[in-house]
Design a protein around this nucleic acid. Structure first.
Lengths: 228, 228
DNA sequence: GTCGGCATGATTGTATACAATACTGTGCGC
DNA sequence: GCGCACAGTATTGTATACAATCATGCCGAC
């Protein structure tokens, strides 16, 4: 790993940098994050690295195993379902609130996000596109002026990125942008009802595009995996 | 502060112990949590204390001000509204799920919780009663088999405890237990519809019993608090 | 040849030393 | 007497040293 070592990295910056790497699928689930390795890469001591890892662990992006180290989390099928269950409780109603208080400036921000995502996709940067696609959802919570829900949604989106890395099935990537376009129309019309409904089905679509039948449970899978 | 210093405290245990103190209103909002002070009290080094404080900060129970130290959080009026908005999105639907998959063992646990709360109230331990009252809500999320939502609800309950400490108005404390009793009946009947509705109005009751008109924003409060 | 135990190395857990920053009180100047 | 500057103190921020734990590979016994 190589980083520009003239910079002084704070705990939050290290955590954000690692999170971004995870969300862009540059760090796949299960990757070991050695403390010395990271400390050297960022040119800081393990103290900061540990604090950053603890922060990410609290967001469930990283799993800390005592005396073993930190690993990029590998959400189970159950956890994947739970994450989308939580999202389905929070996001549709939040999209409604957002639609109802949407301003021109907000619309511009959302549109810029979609445009950037298109640019990234055209450039073949699918990781960056996925990151932006998630930011779209977080932005909606911000527009609804619900900082608390925004924090939850942000965490759920991050975890969703891991889930997608593990369980994504469909290779056709165009469904995403279509749904966001449809939401934009509802937002522009300040149509809360429609926004709520669209978000609801968008989330259902997302779950449907995952392969959650898989019996890839890390803990209990061994005997089943061997079929005996 | 005095603790039994024969015990070896882990980070999680220290965090849990502090959280319990906050939830029981033994540590009021705004209290400074000095690192040396805590380290000595638990008989550990500042390393562990800092990790525990960071964990609590992530749950928004503690506010970390750079180079200033850690303080028990003082949720603003806005934050209070946001917390109950989030709860109103998560808890009613979760109560429905819980009701539908409620077992006899689950009912027993919930009933035991209510009984303990009564005992605590009779013994004048209002802090412990409040803690148990919160645990009732978390237990419901656990019964619904939604660990992710459970974690969110747990955080929201903890923050609600701070909010109650700051903005509680009604002194009559019996409304709480009544609502929980009503929920128990719906759970016993495995009546999801009723459980969802009861939880919804229970949360509305809670907000209604707070005084959120207050202009008690920490920053601007000093002059007003002195009335001049 | 395979299994189990042991030694070695690598990595994490914890404490502590030192540096940087913010708070407190005193003294000097006006 | 009042206000500001400065020094001293206390507290937090960061790095590092050491201890504890785990992983790996070798060697001997069966």
């Amino acid at each position: 790993m190589n980083k520009i070592d003239t910079r002084i990295w704070t705990t939050e910056e290290v955590a954000a940098d690692l999170e971004r790497a995870v969300l862009e699928h540059r760090l796949p689930p299960g990757t070991k994050l050695g403390e010395d390795e990271l400390a050297e890469a960022y040119g800081i001591s393990r103290t900061i690295v540990r604090a950053a890892l603890q922060a990410l662990a609290h967001k469930r992006l990283v799993e800390l195993r005592r005396n073993r180290g930190a690993f990029i989390a590998q959400p189970s099928v159950r956890e994947a379902r739970e994450v989308f269950e939580a999202r389905s409780l929070l996001e549709p109603r939040t999209a409604r609130s957002a639609a109802e208080r949407m301003t021109g400036a907000d619309l511009a921000i959302l549109q810029a996000n979609i445009d950037e995502e298109h640019t990234a996709l055209d450039a073949g940067e699918s990781g960056k596109a996925l990151l932006l696609s998630g930011q779209f959802h977080v932005e909606i919570a911000r527009i609804a002026h619900q900082a608390t829900i925004e924090a939850f949604v942000s965490e759920l989106i991050s975890r969703s990125s891991l889930i997608i890395a593990l369980y994504w099935r469909r290779r056709a990537a165009l469904c995403e942008t279509q749904a966001h376009h449809a939401l934009m129309k509802a937002f522009t019309a300040q149509d809360g009802d429609t926004a709520e409904q669209l978000m609801k089905s968008h989330l259902l679509d997302l779950v449907a595009s995952l392969d959650l039948r898989a019996v890839t449970e890390p803990a209990t899978s061994l005997r089943e995996a061997l079929g005996r």
